[in-house]
């Protein structure tokens, strides 16, 4: 099953490499990875997605928790949560395709954030599934470049991942 694991990590050099290294060391795959500072400058928030069975996930979260730099960890997929992935996609926009790309972007509530004589750059925010569908819907157009932030996630309601 696909899991979204989110953690608060000491903002120390080497912390990220310990987390990432653990995956290869123990034979796990990371599908997406997102890491950035938080409101507390001593902490960064890391969110990653991976597809594994329950047993392997249990072992993985235990191993991650054991890392001294990991302060707190949650498997967001265990409860109601919000996930967002941000995509910037550059497509060829000439002739009839120009209109078509614009229309599809509107349907997906994306924004064209850069316009060139022959290209559009579109920004789209949503779940990974939504971004995947958008890319699929663009199949008719010529996709020049795709860049995604990886999933960031947060629990719904009162539940928080904080110190």
């Amino acid at each position: 099953m696909r899991r979204i694991i989110s953690m608060l990590m000491e903002n120390e050099p080497g912390a990220l490499s310990r987390v990432v290294g653990l995956f290869s060391q123990r034979g796990y795959n990371i599908d997406t990875l997102n890491v950035a500072p938080t409101d507390d400058p001593t902490l960064s928030r890391l969110t990653l997605t991976t597809v594994e069975n329950d047993l392997r996930i249990e072992q993985l979260t235990k191993q991650l928790n054991k890392l001294v730099d990991v302060v707190k960890l949650a498997d967001l997929t265990e409860g109601a949560h919000i996930e967002r992935d941000l995509m910037l996609i550059k497509v060829r926009a000439t002739g009839v395709a120009r209109e078509e790309v614009k229309r599809t972007t509107d349907i997906f509530r994306g924004q064209i954030v850069d316009v060139g004589p022959t290209v559009y750059t579109i920004q789209l925010v949503g779940t990974s599934d939504k971004l995947d569908s958008f890319v699929a819907a663009m199949a008719g157009a010529e996709i020049l470049e795709v860049v995604r932030s990886g999933v960031a996630g947060i629990s719904r309601g009162e539940k928080v991942l904080s110190l």
Binding site: L55, E58, Q59, K62, Q63, N65, K66
Partner: peptide
């Protein structure tokens, strides 16, 4: 003492 040692191979 190490939770990761528990149920790693034998449940």
């Amino acid at each position: 003492v190490d939770p990761a040692s528990i149920s790693k191979t034998v449940i």
